[in-house]
Structure formats: structure tokens, C-alpha cells
């Protein structure tokens, strides 16, 4: 009950904000009868109505995981974002090995196999992408090799 209501409320807020920002869209002199504002506003309105329906008639709650699982999901998101940022400056091998090992550990908490699968995946995928598929990946940061 509660999760659907909260989600409905969030959607309602987003939809209203969306409509509000749609009214700010600049129109050009080459105007057609509909213009660039109408469709986004229509979509926003439809979303707002659906959100109201959801608030009034919510479904039963799903099984949310316990707080600790949420913690590890958050860690996973942070790892992935950090990986995205590290990919260019640090090259492929190092960030991939670390990120894959952490994800592997999170799915099955055994340090040994996790580390191995991290290293294996990173080297294996690098060889696959670089030599079998011919993508231009950089293995290590330029400064390291000199």
C-alpha cells in the first residue's frame, strides 16, 4: 500500500514539474498548430492522472529487501558510477578488475573466487574486445607505460 502511494506521489511531483518546465519551452516563429509544448504537457497530464489513480487505489506492497541489502545495492551503484568515471583516466584493466570483483563478491560473498573472477573477466574481456572484436580500448593509463 504505502510504497505505491509514495511512488504515486513522486510521479505526481515529477509530472507537475515536467508540465511546469514544458510551459517554459521556447516557441519559434515557424509555429505549427500544435507547437513544441502541447505533447509534453499532454504526457505530463496523463502521468499525473495515472499517479492520482495509483494513490487512490494502490496495490499490496512488494517484498522489500532488508536494510542491509539496500546498503549493498547502494554500494553497487557507487561502484558502478566510480567505474564509469574511472574508465577513461585509468584504462580498462584495473577499474574493470576491481569493479567486477566487488560485484562478484556482492552476489556470492567469497573473497577468493570473487577476486579471481574479477581478474579473469577483466583480462579475458580485454583480449576479446581488443583483438577479437577490434575495439580501441586502452589497457593501462598512458602515464604508467610511459
Amino acid at each position: 500500500m504505502a510504497s505505491d502511494r509514495i511512488f504515486g506521489l513522486v510521479v505526481l511531483m515529477v509530472a507537475l514539474a515536467y508540465i511546469a518546465s514544458a510551459t517554459q519551452i521556447q516557441t519559434s516563429f515557424l509555429a505549427d498548430p500544435v507547437g513544441p509544448k502541447a505533447f509534453p504537457m499532454l504526457v505530463g497530464a496523463l502521468a499525473a492522472i495515472s499517479a492520482l489513480v495509483l494513490i487512490v487505489r494502490p496495490d499490496p506492497d512488494p517484498d522489500w529487501p532488508v536494510a542491509r541489502t539496500f546498503g549493498s545495492l547502494l554500494v553497487a551503484i557507487i561502484v558502478l558510477v566510480a567505474y564509469a568515471l574511472a574508465l577513461r583516466p585509468l584504462g580498462f584493466i584495473l577499474p574493470t578488475a576491481i569493479a567486477a570483483a566487488i560485484l562478484s563478491y556482492q552476489i556470492s560473498p567469497r573473497p577468493g573466487p570473487a577476486a579471481l573472477s574479477g581478474i579473469g573477466l577483466s583480462v579475458g574481456l580485454f583480449l576479446l574486445f581488443k583483438f577479437a572484436l577490434g575495439l580501441g580500448l586502452v589497457a593501462f593509463p598512458k602515464g604508467l607505460i610511459g
Binding site: A100, G120, L121
Partner: peptide, 13 residues
Amino acid sequence: WVLLPGVTMISFV
């Protein structure tokens, strides 16, 4: 624990 990290890395690349 090998498959899913692998899928993630392939998606990223």
C-alpha cells in the same frame, strides 16, 4: 557471480 559482473562490464564497454 561470474556471469553477472561479466554482463555488466560488457554493457559498459
